[in-house]
Design a protein around this nucleic acid. Structure first.
Lengths: 208, 208
DNA sequence: GTCTATAATTTGATAGAC
DNA sequence: GTCTATCAAATTATAGAC
């Protein structure tokens, strides 16, 4: 932690510069537009230099996946831990689709591209072992029987992903507001927790 | 219909040959692998000839979208029209996810690539005006109040798409069988139609 | 560590002969 | 309608100088 850690001082700096540039390109023009040359241009290095820090384009994509997933986990973690399980679940669900709406290219990279990228995102699983499923499973522990919880988390995740994902590719055909869809997906879990009204209030007061 | 229709006899033939080749490439190696040259190689024509029949790669992709969506509509239409609304809804939902499982590259092209391709698929909307939403809405007419039907169709579609889509990219993280997830998504609509047992039976007896 | 230079491909698309 | 030939560009990745 004192001397050894400084053995390669600039390694992280350069790596981060590459990832910053890559992230910017993906955010602006989508993942297909990501290339080694464009990254090199952005950071003012030659393309050859990138290979000193990453094996290739795919390794950078994998890193972006892990990073994006961690970002999503942070968003889910930002819910008020003092709230009731039902409240936390509601917050989390809305935060999930909001993340997809606010970072569509990242969301698409992580969950809509292919199973390798999804695995790169979930496999790494943040700095701890958190995944979308475990995050949703947490507030569900109080709302489901022990037995039904794993399946419940997957069911809810699938519902939220369906909403988030269709809102990116098929928004022209979805007339119902996204937050109303989310509230509907949550309804079975909140049936008699008297938080229905809260959920309904959230639906109205949301913007970009 | 007699003379005029024969004015351009081979037009459709060539067009179909191109689409057949394009479809084969997408099915085998995914949409990213689709290029004008590869199509030309497959059909034994020069790349230049393709431009006589399609504006470019994107036009071919659009045609594949429309075709793929029509194929999905056919799958949904193949449910027994004599069955009860609840039965038809159940059949349709399972047919939907089965289509995604059996034609993952096509499903991804239509619903997971971008909104332009989704619009190209849904906008065309088969030979009639059918879309995923209207197909699901049909059996729902008998199971929902008139008012709730449009939203119900979108909610169900989102749930099914979430299941289908995650089963393609995140299957490693989904432990619950796909058909069980579908049955769960259907449950609210089938609450008291006594078809729950039928749905449960379907879940066990499915294969590729 | 970084650069220059470049190899080796692949791409979409077009001009013009036939 | 189809082909040959080709353009103009982009891509990943590497070799070797510094």
């Amino acid at each position: 932690m004192t001397v050894i850690a400084q053995r390669t001082p600039k390694r992280h700096v350069m790596r981060n510069a590459i990832l910053d540039a890559a992230r910017a390109i993906v955010l602006r023009h989508g993942f297909d537009a990501l290339s080694m040359r464009k990254i090199a241009d952005v950071i003012g290095y030659s393309p050859a230099s990138l290979y000193l820090h990453f094996e290739g384009r795919d390794a950078i994509a994998h890193a972006l996946c892990a990073e994006g997933h961690a970002q999503l986990m942070d968003a889910l973690r930002s819910v008020d831990p003092a709230a009731t399980p039902a409240g936390r679940l509601t917050e989390m669900a809305h935060a999930y689709v909001a993340f997809a709406r606010d970072h569509p290219q990242i969301y698409q990279l992580i969950f809509m591209e292919n199973s390798a990228y999804t695995a790169a995102a979930m496999g790494h699983a943040g700095s701890d072992g958190a995944t979308t499923l475990s995050m949703l499973g947490d507030p569900l522990t109080a709302l489901c029987t022990e037995e039904k919880r794993p399946a419940a988390a997957e069911i809810l995740w699938a519902a939220l992903h369906g909403i988030a994902s269709l809102s990116l590719t098929a928004s022209a055909f979805i007339g119902t507001p996204v937050d109303a869809l989310v509230d509907h997906a949550l309804a079975p879990y909140l049936a008699n927790t008297a938080i229905g009204r809260t959920a309904r209030r959230r639906s109205s007061g949301r913007s970009a």
